[in-house]
């Protein structure tokens, strides 16, 4: 079997195990959908100022915000947690002792979380269109897809990187959430931008979550006149992704930590 076929085969097994694991399926998959419903129930009809400076309904903000959260949750949180568990359970070490090429194994894992991410994004987007009247304008569709692609790749890389600083599998949820939750709060995901003091936004701008959220906000903005590409934001996200790759390559370990 070719290594590519092996990677695709790995996706099938990852996928099967994922959906059978209630904790993984819930926190990675159901969580963003719950947030979508709650935020829209609470703030969906409120008039707010969106990233482009225009005034729109809360849903215009929250649909792309939950799309960004979906990317972070499935690619970053999902990958960092499942890799930590696989490493400390000895699954990575065991897999390394087989003829399966390392890249095929990790490609399988990355493809799996990418599929989860895409499924989430489709659900959120369709729900946004049907229930909350939020459409991705056709003109900015390429910008939305590129943002998803760059964001997905970067947050997968960061998932690998963070796995290397997780001391053991039991600590994985604490470490990962300690990183993700504050970022989601300050990065125009849970709370619209006009509520934050300027210095907090400056802090958020150092990290990739806000840039991904901004890129998606623009692509979903009904008033957007251009093609919706936020090149600077995408460049920051990509830079974080490359840093994540470099960090993971230096520090990644197949061996369980005790």
């Amino acid at each position: 079997m070719s290594a590519l076929a092996l990677a695709l085969r790995q996706v099938r097994y990852e996928n099967r195990a994922f959906w059978r694991n209630p904790a993984a399926a819930f926190f990675t998959f159901v969580f963003p959908l719950i947030f979508l419903v709650i935020f829209n129930l609470m703030f969906g009809t409120e008039e707010i100022t969106i990233a482009g400076g225009q005034t729109a309904s809360g849903s215009v903000f929250y649909v792309p915000a939950v799309v960004a959260m979906s990317v972070v949750n499935s690619c970053f949180t999902g990958l960092a947690m499942s890799l930590s568990v696989a490493r400390d359970g000895g699954l990575l070490k065991r897999t390394r002792g087989t003829p399966l090429p390392a890249w095929a194994y990790f490609a399988g894992r990355v493809l799996h979380v990418t599929l989860v991410m895409l499924l989430l994004v489709v659900i959120v987007t369709v729900a946004g269109a049907l229930a909350y009247d939020v459409d991705v304008p056709g003109r900015t569709l390429p910008a939305a897809l590129v943002a998803l692609l760059v964001g997905g790749a970067a947050f997968c890389a960061l998932g690998f990187a963070v796995c290397t600083i997780v001391p053991n599998a039991e600590a994985a949820p604490a470490v990962v959430n300690a990183i993700v939750l504050p970022l989601l709060f300050i990065s125009d995901v849970f709370i619209p931008p006009d509520n934050a003091p300027a210095w907090l936004t400056d802090v958020a701008n150092l990290f990739p979550v806000r840039h991904l959220s901004v890129a998606l906000q623009t692509a979903f903005n009904p008033f957007e006149q251009g093609n919706g590409f936020e090149w600077l934001a995408l460049a920051v996200v990509a830079a974080w992704g490359l840093a994540g790759v470099a960090f993971a390559l230096r520090r990644f370990s197949w061996e369980p930590r005790r």
Binding site: R9, Y13, A17, N21, G90, L91, R94, T95, G97
Partner: peptide, 25 residues
């Protein structure tokens, strides 16, 4: 290789686990 620690995916079945690893060879 049979290591000291059990390194398998807990949510797959016995059959699936053996088939998955067998497929690497």
């Amino acid at each position: 290789i049979v290591l000291q620690s059990t390194g398998v995916e807990p949510y797959l079945t016995v059959e699936e686990t053996v088939a998955m690893f067998g497929g690497y060879y």
